[in-house]
Computed example of a mutant assay.
Amino acid sequence: MSQIPTNLRYSDSHEWVQDNGDGTVTIGITDHAQQALGDVVFVELPEVGSTLTTGEEFGVVESVKAASDLYAPLGGEVLGVNTLLEDAPESLNESPYDDAWLIKIRLAEPDELESLMDADSYTELVANESND
């Protein structure tokens, strides 16, 4: 069973979002997503300073099974990328909610955060996908 922390918000494309409380958020992929991908071997992330639009592709995670696009759950300016993933992409499998965050952004529309799912709604989404 996937870990689904209750303090995060979630997108239907399996990214998690942590509100940093200062108009910025940290974004990563969920435990469910990393399990579905299998062993991660490469991560491509956007440039610091680039601007993302909600729903826009912002990177790629490649595993031994497949390549999967990453989609911005929220729009804003990229403030930081996790350089650990360049040398240790397998961190996504080991610690998807801690060490292996993907990017940090300054939100263009802070209210947009409320449009994401809470942990209960995301748990329901994962359960429904598993039943399909």
Rank of each mutant, 00 (worst) to 15 (best):
D120Y: 12
D69P: 11
V48Y: 04
I4H: 05
L113D: 04
T83C: 00
T6C: 10
N20W: 06
G76P: 05
E112S: 15
V61S: 11
F42S: 10
S13P: 08
N93K: 07
P46W: 04
T83L: 11
M117S: 09
A66V: 12
L84E: 15
T123L: 09
V48E: 03
S95R: 10
A67H: 11
L74D: 01
Q3T: 14
D132M: 14
K65Y: 03
T24N: 10
D132C: 12
K65A: 11
S50K: 12
G55L: 04
R9C: 09
H32N: 09
L8F: 05
E109L: 09
R9Q: 03
T54N: 08
V17I: 15
V40T: 10
T6K: 15
W16V: 02
G23C: 03
E47L: 14
M117L: 14
P73I: 05
T24Q: 01
Q3I: 14
L84W: 06
T54L: 07
P89C: 12
E112N: 02
A100R: 06
G59Q: 09
I27E: 07
N82F: 04
A66L: 15
E109S: 03
F58V: 08
D118Q: 11
G49H: 10
D87V: 02
V81C: 06
W101S: 06
E15L: 03
G38T: 07
Q34M: 05
I4T: 04
D87W: 09
E90A: 14
T51P: 02
D22A: 09
P96I: 04
L8R: 01
L85A: 10
T54M: 12
E56I: 00
P46N: 00
A67G: 01
P5L: 12
D22G: 06
A127C: 03
E90R: 13
P5T: 01
E94G: 11
